[in-house]
């Protein structure tokens, strides 16, 4: 038996919706609502275009709907009931949506927080003084370990996963260095800048008033800060992002 065009069209729209909503998140991060809405409008318009492009198709598509809405004398009880149900459900649903949208919705001001803001120009000049010294690398890393475990471990954690025992008290969660999207995506100079000036040194789009990252230049020497950065990369096994890699 041939599938009615209406069923085909709705299956197509619904199938796309399911794919975008449930299928896609299996491979990548879930779509934001606005993007999902945009895709679905495109799907809907193309479907309607498809069914209305030929006259035959169009009447095949349109007539069953018209018949359903109009109601025919020969309709059986099921058809009648579902017709009434549709006519009652739509206004109720619209009323509900209206209630939801006019209902006072108190949401705290929500800043669009930039996680990796552009560092100030001065940050580009930070160069690791121990960078080329391969012979003493291990020594510096061990000194960095000491700095980390005397200062950073409380928030960033023993596993460098941002789950130190103070972490739950914080609103902006401490960075998880083990995560492939943190220090491995950043240049050493950027990481150093973040350590040096801390949360309070962030530009306004990164909500400096909320970040608990201390301004370590007040507490640690420049040498200690570089060694701590070296320890982060050594422990996690990540390599800092470099200009050479970018150029490739």
């Amino acid at each position: 038996m041939k599938m009615p065009l209406v069923a085909k069209a709705s299956a197509c729209v619904f199938g796309f919706f399911l794919f975008l909503k449930l299928g896609l998140p299996l491979f990548t991060s879930p779509l934001p609502y606005s993007v999902l809405a945009m895709y679905m409008i495109l799907v809907l318009i193309s479907t309607l275009l498809y069914v209305s492009i030929f006259e035959d198709d169009y009447s095949n598509f349109y007539l069953p709907i018209v018949k359903f809405l109009r109601g025919d004398e020969g309709d059986n009880a099921v058809r009648k009931m579902s017709r009434i149900a549709v006519f009652v459900m739509i206004p109720l649903f619209m009323g509900f949506r209206t209630y939801k949208s006019v209902q006072p919705n108190f949401e705290p001001p929500f800043p669009q927080r930039v996680i990796h803001p552009a560092p100030p120009g001065s940050a580009a000049g930070f160069v690791n003084p121990y960078g080329g010294d391969e012979a003493n690398h291990e020594k510096y890393v061990q000194e960095g370990r000491k700095v980390y475990y005397e200062n950073c471990v409380f928030c960033h954690g023993d596993k460098l996963d941002g789950k130190g025992f103070f972490a739950n008290a914080l609103n902006v969660k401490p960075a998880n260095f083990a995560d492939p999207t943190t220090i491995s995506m950043l240049q050493e100079s950027f990481v150093f800048w973040r350590v040096k000036t801390g949360g309070i040194g962030l530009p306004e789009e990164a909500t400096p008033w909320d970040s608990a990252m201390p301004r370590w230049e007040l507490i640690l020497s420049e040498e200690e800060r570089w060694k701590a950065v070296m320890f982060l990369y050594d422990y996690t096994g990540w390599k800092p992002r470099t200009w050479e890699l970018d150029a490739e």
């Binding site: 729209v13 919706f17 991060s29 879930p30 934001p32 609502y33 606005s34 809405a37 945009m38 679905m40 409008i41 809907l44 739509i90 649903f93 619209m94 949506r97 209206t98 939801k100 949208s101 929500f110 596993k159 460098l160 996963d161 998880n176 083990a178 995560d179 492939p180 999207t181 996690t236 096994g237 990540w238």
Partner: peptide, 27 residues
Amino acid sequence: FLAVVLLFGWTPLVAADEEHDDAAPTA
């Protein structure tokens, strides 16, 4: 019109991006 409303409701078609967990296995 009905179809659009049924699919997306009455809310404006802009909404804050949902935050997703950045849980990743430790190296």
